[in-house]
Amino acid sequence: MKISDLLDLIEDDSVPIREKDIIASERIMEVTMAKIHAENEANPFMRKKVRKSTTFVIIAAVILALSVTALAAGLFNHVARWDGTQWEETMATPMPTTAPETPSAEEPELEAMDEVLAKSQGRELVIAKCGSNAGSNERIEVLTSMNQLKELLTADRSPFTIPVCVPEGYAFSRGAVAYELAAEYSYTLKSSEMQDNGLVVERYTAPEEGDFISAYTLVFVNSTGDELVLSGRMSENSESAGFGYSDGDNVRKVDMEEMDNALVIEYPEYTALFMRKALNNSISYIFPLGMIREDDDPVNEFDGIIYRITSTTLDGEAICALLAP
């Protein structure tokens, strides 16, 4: 092992190295934000504070429809914003897998953590902790019909909108809703156990009156098996959202009734219509991982809803027509 390899094991900030004026900070910010937006768009259900891909694993198991977007992660080299502006970025570089804070020896423990969380479904909140790592499940309810979603949204007095009927030629296939807890409520610890492998699993309940729907996904299928996927999710920075695409993809700004913004992106494998509706009043919710660290402010705010409709067969015009027949 070489000396420089051994120093991979330490972190240092004691040396006053002479900083070089190589790249403007604004440029680093721009490139970093483009990567963040592209990742957010690729994994819209990813819990922002969960380490590893726990939440995505869970949701993907329930709502396979999201996989089509996930496939595109890392392939985008442009980002489109709501106002139609587009950034050109180089996104082809994969993230290095080595970082000093995540030694490979932790991987089996992290896998065990993911496994526990992947089995946790329903309105119960499960937090798994392993050393300095922690993750939570996504609290979801599986849907058996579109009417069920309508009833849930009505009971919840939710700001979400959904199509008035199943799109012509399609039938309901599957779906799910995800819940967050309003900031004025709190989770109650139900049990805490340490497993043989050292994993600490905490289970919490949330008061039903404080729960609200923060996302939904509906999957429709036609007679040839083609899927139409509609999802809506509350967003913390909905106005600054960006959507990844690659050279050759068709991106255009469109107007959709009752929506503040809309974009159509035609990818090689599918077409997506993205729409944003600002919330009249932002909605505060309490983030479960806020319970883990005392100095972490657990309250976050949603300021809008981002809808997405994807189809592997319909073009942008046809998707828009479905919503405004």
Binding site: R27, V31, T32, K35, E39, K49, S132, I292
Partner: peptide
């Protein structure tokens, strides 16, 4: 530029630790 922005992406993702 690519590597530096990746570094700040890691910071963004791991801030709580």
């Amino acid at each position: 530029e690519e590597v530096s922005s990746d570094v700040f992406l890691v910071l963004w993702k791991n801030a709580e630790r």
